Amino acid sequence: MADKGIRIEGLTKRYGKGDTAVDALKGVNMTVAPGEVVGLIGPSGSGKSTLLKCLGAVIDPTAGRMMLGDDVIFEDRWIRRDLRALRRDKIGFVFQAPYLIPFLEVIDNVALLPMLAGVPNDEARERALELLAALDVQHRARAMPSQLSGGEQQRVAIARGLVNRPPVILADEPTAPLDSKRALAVIRILNDMAKRFETAIIVVTHDEKIIPTFKRIYHIRDGVTYEEAGEGRGFD
């Protein structure tokens, strides 16, 4: 689909100037199709966090090109000027910790983003409930985050990442705190949601439990990416 998927071409990020400059990214290339879940792995200091922050429009790349579908969002400078709106409307985030708002019910934790984007409250809650049902936690819609199990909290966090229907989701170590069964359940959910909503998902991980599930993997080492075929077990 023209408005979905992500493509990165020659992305660089340099910190500092002159003799003290450090090249954290050295021409990264990456493509993730709509409906695809891709793994991003690499040792500490390899550039994973820097790449994720660039993709999430949290920090400015130095050069290169980033596209969401046919929409160029960065080409040696930000083409989209309102980065807050870009993050809100085009990029979903799932973190290692759920970061749910403790004083809001589950349904409003999920509905808050579309409400902030101007979606009427009833419509935002309806959209949130649809996602909670897809993730099998609709029965917890009126619960407070403190009443949820760790697995339920992560499902709610995934719903929140999807609720604005972004073309891209960035998942940063989403299974790190989970045991094997729950970790694999989260990855299965991400695969199911990617296919259902035609979302391109990048999962940054060190978790050896889930690495065999990816059909494609990008290794990042010293600021450069290398693609390889993954095992892709269990999610056909």
Score class of each variant (00 low, 15 high):
I79M: 11
G64P: 09
R77W: 03
G39T: 00
L68G: 02
R65H: 12
E36M: 09
T62M: 04
F74C: 00
I59F: 01
L51P: 14
C54E: 02
I41G: 01
R80H: 12
L86P: 00
T20D: 15
A97P: 00
M30D: 02
G64T: 01
S49D: 08
A24R: 09
S49W: 02
R65K: 15
D23M: 13
E36G: 12
E36W: 09
P98H: 12
L25N: 05
V58A: 02
S46V: 05
R65G: 01
T50Q: 12
M66G: 01
T62I: 02
D60F: 03
E36Q: 15
M66A: 04
L68Y: 01
G69D: 10
I91D: 07
R80N: 10
V37Y: 06
G56K: 03
P61K: 00
L51C: 06
R77N: 05
I91H: 01
A33I: 07
E75A: 11
R80Y: 08
T20I: 09
I73G: 04
K48F: 06
V38P: 11
G18F: 13
W78V: 06
G92M: 05
L55E: 02
A97H: 13
D23K: 12
P34Y: 10
S49G: 10
A33Q: 15
K90F: 00
G35S: 13
G27D: 06
T50Y: 11
A63M: 06
G45P: 08
P61Q: 00
A97W: 13
K48Q: 03
I91E: 04
G56W: 08
L25M: 11
R84P: 03
W78K: 08
K90T: 00
C54N: 14
P98C: 02
D71Y: 09
G64H: 03
L40P: 05
T50C: 10
L25Y: 10
F93S: 07
D70R: 15
